[in-house]
Simulated scan of single mutants.
Amino acid sequence: MADMGIFRDTVTGWAGGGSPGAAGQLAAEAGVRTVVLVEGPSDLAALEALATRFGRVLHEEGVCVLSMGGAMNVGRYAGLLGPPGLGLRLTGLCDEQERPFYDRALERAGAPGREVFVCVKDLEEEMIRALGVPVVEEIVEAEGELTPWQTFTRQPAQQGRNRQDQVRRFLGTRKGRKIRYGHLLAGALDPGRVPAPLDALFAAL
Rank of each mutant, 00 (worst) to 15 (best):
A45P: 12
R114Y: 01
L47F: 10
V167I: 14
R161K: 15
G144F: 02
G13H: 12
V35H: 04
G69N: 07
G69A: 09
V133I: 08
E145M: 15
A142S: 08
G31A: 08
C64M: 15
V38D: 04
A71Y: 03
G31E: 08
A46T: 04
E126F: 11
F117H: 12
A51R: 02
L66D: 03
T173R: 14
T147A: 13
E126A: 14
A204W: 09
T151S: 13
G55R: 05
G176Q: 05
P156I: 10
S67Y: 00
R108H: 11
V74Q: 06
D43K: 03
R33D: 10
D165Q: 12
E60Q: 15
G187Q: 03
E29Q: 14
T147H: 00
Q166K: 12
T153E: 13
Y102V: 09
M72D: 12
N73Y: 04
L66Y: 03
M68G: 08
G40H: 06
E125T: 13
L189V: 10
V74D: 06
A51Q: 08
E96W: 02
R89F: 07
R8T: 09
E96V: 01
D165G: 09
Q25C: 00
I6Y: 00
F7A: 13
E125W: 08
N73H: 15
W149R: 00
G62H: 07
H183Y: 08
A157D: 13
A22V: 06
G92H: 00
D95V: 04
M68S: 06
I139M: 05
R163D: 13
E107H: 14
G75P: 14
T12R: 12
G40M: 00
P191Q: 05
G21H: 03
A203S: 15
A78T: 07
E138M: 08
A203D: 14
S67R: 00
W149M: 11
P112K: 04
L44D: 13
A27F: 08
A200S: 14
G113Q: 07
V167Y: 02
L37P: 13
L86S: 06
P84Y: 03
P148S: 04
G18Q: 02
A46C: 03
L184K: 09
G92A: 15
P100N: 06
D199N: 13
P134F: 00
Y77R: 03
G31Q: 06
A23V: 06
A23R: 02
G82W: 10
V120T: 12
L58S: 07
Y181H: 06
G160D: 11
D9H: 11
P20A: 05
A30G: 12
R114I: 05
D103E: 15
A105D: 03
Q158A: 01
L80D: 04
K175A: 15
V63F: 03
Q150I: 10
Q97E: 14
H183F: 02
G144V: 06
R53V: 11
R163T: 10
E141I: 01
G132S: 10
